[in-house]
């Protein structure tokens, strides 16, 4: 079941800027959906349309089967939203603001007080509980935003750049929180930091210039890399490294290799068994008198898949425009095998 669904979602600002173009998005229930895209790709616009903060120029958004509009407070009751660099009433404290959000969400005083207490503690704002929000740093505001989005215990979370302004520890904590919350909630999290998405998401959608160019599971995303590589780092001097280079010419299933210091990037022949290749490489290293310091596969690297998609999308611009009338695949969105 898809909890969020968009149909032909398009947003054009003032006849000047196309922020989103015919986006067909499906977010399956219980997924942690990563919304990827460079700055200005349309991620925040998509969130705002999902919440009814803006009206689509064309198309529609449905959450839990209900169409979303400016007055869809019943839908927003099930959604927790964290904007990028959130703004809060500067004269309020975390406690008064979370209490205010609780009232807006229709929570009773008995439910609000313990909940806001545990949330303030959970996001590490206990020391700043009586401080005015106007004095908060960006990271503190983001943490307060996380708490506010969880105040009504929603079944869907829309988090726009949740790690924005956070220090490494806060970032780590937020990623862990997303994984933990993902056990019981559907989460849509946007980021342009690939590592974050790779780490926690089960599904991913890639936006480029307002177009959804991919939507599918993380596995499907990673499989879209056409050239797999094997990276091996060796110990030993130049002699060992050159002997390995010579020995590797005899390895079956190896299309070529490049040396980068003590590291070799090996390109397997398409379809070659990676296991056999690793075994052969290990033999060649032994033969060269060296040892393996590290071995990694370039297959499935999120960054490669992502950049490859953006490049392809840029290259296919005209074809996409021509295919717009046919929709779906031709429209630019490459869908993986159905995610659910």
């Amino acid at each position: 079941m898809d909890v969020i669904r968009t149909q032909n979602l398009t947003k054009i600002y003032g006849h000047r800027k196309i922020a989103l173009n015919a986006v067909e998005l499906r977010v399956p229930k219980g997924s942690i959906f990563g919304f990827l895209g460079p700055n200005g790709a349309g991620k925040t616009t998509a969130f705002r349309l999902m919440l009814g903060l803006q009206r689509p120029t064309a198309g529609r958004v449905e959450i839990l089967g209900k169409r979303v509009g400016p007055n869809s407070s019943d839908v927003r009751r099930h959604v927790g939203y964290l904007p990028t660099n959130p703004e809060f009433p500067p004269d309020m404290t975390p406690i008064t603001y979370l209490d205010f959000v609780g009232v807006l969400c229709g929570l009773s005083r008995e439910a609000r007080s313990p909940r806001l207490g545990s949330l303030v503690r959970a996001v590490g704002l206990l020391g700043a509980q009586s401080q005015r929000i106007g004095t908060f740093s960006t990271g503190m505001k983001t943490r307060l935003g996380i708490a506010a989005s969880l105040m009504n215990d929603p079944s869907i979370l829309l988090w726009d750049e949740p790690c924005s302004g956070l220090d490494p520890a806060g970032r780590r904590h937020t990623m862990d929180l997303i994984t933990w919350l993902g056990r019981t909630k559907t989460i849509v999290v946007s980021s342009h930091i690939l590592g974050d998405i790779d780490q926690v998401c089960t599904h991913v959608g890639v936006l480029s210039d307002g177009q959804l160019i991919f939507s599918g599971t993380m596995g499907e995303m990673k499989q879209r890399i056409h050239v797999d590589t094997l990276v091996v780092e060796l110990s030993g001097g130049d002699g060992v490294l050159e002997r390995f280079r010579a020995a590797s010419r005899a390895i079956e299933g190896l299309d070529g290799l490049e040396r980068e210091g003590s590291r070799f990037h090996l390109r397997p022949v398409p379809g070659a068994s990676l296991g056999e290749l690793v075994a052969a490489v290990a033999g060649s290293v032994r033969e060269a008198g060296g040892d393996i310091l590290s071995l990694s596969t370039g297959q499935g690297r999120m960054e490669d898949a992502y950049l490859q998609m953006l490049e392809q999308d840029g290259a296919r611009g005209f074809l996409r425009a021509c295919g717009d009338a046919e929709g779906g695949e031709a429209n630019g969105c490459v869908r993986g095998t159905p995610a659910s």
């Binding site: 407070s73 703004e87 009504n152």
Partner: peptide, 19 residues
């Protein structure tokens, strides 16, 4: 003066514009 706060803190919650 609330234009920034409005979307982030108020109208993204279960509140109607009319309210």
């Amino acid at each position: 003066p609330e234009s920034g706060v409005l979307a982030d803190s108020v109208l993204s919650r279960p509140v109607t514009r009319s309210q």
